[in-house]
Amino acid sequence: MTRDAVSPASMTGQWLWRAGKTLLSLPFAYAALVILMVVAYFMRPALLSPMLLLLILRQAAPLGIAVLGQSLCMRVLSLDLSIGGVIVGVSYILTSGLLPFSEPVLLLVAVAFGVAVGLLNAFFITRLRASSVIVTLAVTLVITGVAVALSQLRSPGEAPEILRQLVRLKIGIVPVVLVIWALLLLAVAIFIRRSVFGRYVDAIGANPRAAWVSGIPYVRVVSVVHVMSSLFAVFAGFLLIGFVGIGSMDLGRDLALNSLAAVILGGVTFGSGKGGVLGPTVAALMLTFSFNLLTSLGLGEPAKLMLQGIIIGVAAAAYSVQRNN
């Protein structure tokens, strides 16, 4: 009857210990978000007002959506640094007026462009076994180069009216953008958890060689992952262009690296499904909140750059330590 002898106090202790352990095993982003909010509460309480919080949430949406694709890539031991390039491309397609189409057709062209970039990345990575970092970085450079060259001819202009309206729409006080983001998040979470595709993603992440040997369609799965990542980038681009109202060559420049940082902070490591899709999402919120906090403290762009650098550097070091163990 030892079980009965356990006092209520020690049961509470056990419960606390277990809860503490669960909290500690949560991705870093959760704790960081809480800490940042506490800091904000004391130093810039205005940031925590519901209206500002909703604005920050809305502002986090493009990163949050791009992060969905990036986390998929990392689960299959790949990376997507072409997110920035895709957004520049989308911005040029939509705002330059080079293509004489109506707005809905332009949006479709942008989607097709995203699919093409995803397939191109996948081709180089799966067929030619090139490093995903180099390939996707090169793709970004080429797209940006082409867009800059074309912009001499015809500079980017006004954003399509559809997108400017879309980002302003609200249901009650909740921006539609947030609803779309939540739906995408839910769809990806269910798809990854329940589909054949999700099982294959886990298998490839755990042991790509075994996946190949046992006849899992490696090429197809990795291609779908990269196409999905590019499509999320296209959609993130739509939102950014809608926010800003005009096209620009700077749009989404730091989205690729921020999405990488968010995925790592969200607990996803190369080849593992840890952290799920919620971890990276919380990390995207946390990063966006931290940039706002820094700006409100008057630290602005330089501090933001340093923070990004430190996050990615620490994450890379943590990754290699983990791999060596």
Binding site: S195, F197, R199, Y200, A206, S214, I216, V221, S272
Partner: peptide, 23 residues
């Protein structure tokens, strides 16, 4: 797939003929 569970390892075999988007 050493990090994956017994369950997941065996399930992967049963998916052989299914299209990848199937739930």
């Amino acid at each position: 797939y050493l990090p994956l569970s017994i369950d997941e390892n065996i399930t992967l075999g049963m998916l052989r003929r299914l299209p990848i988007w199937q739930l």
